[in-house]
Design a protein around this nucleic acid. Structure first.
Lengths: 152, 152
DNA sequence: ATAATTCCTCAACTTAAGTTGAGGTCAAGC
DNA sequence: GCTTGACCTCAACTTAAGTTGAGGAATTAT
């Protein structure tokens, strides 16, 4: 099918539809997460399918994934054809698995803290959190995840 | 009680005991999280009680708290006297509450994602994650939390 | 007394995920 | 056909939590 001018969106329209800022979308292009075309005047023109791609980025970010994570996920999409709903569902399911893991990890950390609350051992070598086995491997250069929160 | 030279630790000793790097400890001093004395030569000298304080910082960080969070927690410690085990336990208990909240929040997000997996609505206004109510308030200038992870 | 550590400050660099602003161009409405 | 608003690039700035390095001083060990 051919694309008519109606199928091409300016960056502001995409921003309005996805909830992303214009500057963030430009940044994502620079990061290689989306690849809009350009019109004669050099302005970006997005396919309607890019809305879904950008929304995916936004959602994954809200779930605490880094753009690197997102890049890896998007790499699993078919290239050449527009992703189908099934493609997106596959990605979402994969994310759910990672979320589940994170929840388990947090629960483990919390339980360790419980152990420490009892023993007051904050500075001792035997403290379960002080001397973590697996979690702490992340110190150094591991991937990191960020989630916004209000703690007022 | 008086303090003898044995009670005063050089920064390298504190680093070895707490697992923090020397540069991180200096950074924490600059951030006002710890306040070592200085000897005649201008070198830092830490009280043994500072080990516990610094360990608390390290643990809180591993649990995903920011230094700002830590600063707020430490502000709740008594000033003037060395914190007791009960003081530290109070702090740990407060942290546990925050961790519990976080876990609940993650579970909610995960469940929302489940809803989205089914509907494939990633770009639609009605998507529960796309159009989040409370969580998304963190976008902008909210506090953020970071936890290390390996996702290989 | 001297060599080897450890320590000091200060400035610059790092990563992630953008934002902000300057200076200039394009497109749309009237 | 002009004005307004949307868009362009590019560079610099932001925050958090430090690390790295230069250049020098203090402490410890022999």
């Amino acid at each position: 099918m051919k694309l008519s001018a109606r199928d091409l969106l300016a960056i502001g329209q995409v921003a309005a539809r996805t909830g992303l800022s214009v500057s963030a979308i430009r940044f994502y292009e620079e990061a290689g997460l989306v690849a809009p075309m350009r019109n004669n005047g050099g302005q970006r023109r997005f396919l309607r399918a890019d809305n879904r791609r950008l929304s995916f980025i936004r959602i994954a970010q809200q779930l605490g994934f880094t753009l690197e994570d997102v890049r890896a996920q998007l790499a699993a999409l078919p290239n050449g054809r527009t992703p189908t709903k099934a493609d997106w569902t596959r990605l979402s399911t994969a994310m759910r698995g990672v979320l589940d893991e994170r929840i388990v990890r947090m629960e483990r950390l919390r339980d360790r803290l419980d152990g420490c609350i009892g023993c007051g051992c904050l500075s001792l070598k035997s403290c379960a959190i002080y001397n973590p086995d697996d979690e702490a491997r992340a110190r150094g250069s591991g991937a990191r995840w960020v989630l916004g929160e209000r703690n007022g």
